[in-house]
C-alpha cells in the first residue's frame, strides 16, 4: 500500500460516507437508490485499491447492478416517496 493509494482510499471513503448519509436522509426513495448506487461505486474503487479483483467483480455486479435494479423494481411496483412522520 503506497501513500498514493492510501490517500486515494481516504478520498474515496469520504465521498462514500457522504453518499451514505444522503441515501439515508433522502425522502425520495428513487434518489436514495441512486445515492446508494453511487456509494457502491466508491466502494468498488476502494476494493480495487485494496487489490481484491475477485471482490470487485462480484461486488460491482451485486451492488451497482442487482441492488439498484431490484430497488427500481420495488419502487416502480410500490411507492416512490417516503412519508414524513408527523
Amino acid at each position: 500500500m503506497s501513500l498514493f493509494a492510501a490517500s486515494l482510499i481516504t478520498f474515496t471513503l469520504t465521498i462514500g460516507a457522504l453518499f451514505t448519509y444522503l441515501a439515508i436522509k433522502s425522502r425520495d426513495l428513487l434518489k436514495a437508490t441512486i445515492f446508494s448506487a453511487a456509494q457502491s461505486a466508491t466502494y468498488a474503487l476502494i476494493f480495487f485499491l485494496l487489490m481484491a479483483p475477485d471482490i470487485v467483480l462480484a461486488y460491482i455486479a451485486v451492488a451497482i447492478g442487482i441492488y439498484t435494479v431490484i430497488l427500481l423494481y420495488i419502487i416502480s411496483k410500490t411507492e416512490r416517496y417516503e412519508e414524513v412522520e408527523s
Binding site: 479483483p53 475477485d54 467483480l57 462480484a58 455486479a61 451485486v62 447492478g65 442487482i66 435494479v69
Partner: peptide, 25 residues
C-alpha cells in the same frame, strides 16, 4: 471467457454468472 479462466485469472463462477445475467437483464 471470465468463467473459463476462473481458475487462472480473477473471476469465477459467481462473477461470470452475474455477468451473463447482464445480457438477459
Amino acid at each position: 471467457s471470465v468463467a473459463l479462466h476462473g481458475h487462472l485469472t480473477p473471476g469465477g463462477g459467481f462473477q461470470s454468472g452475474s455477468m451473463m445475467a447482464v445480457a438477459f437483464l
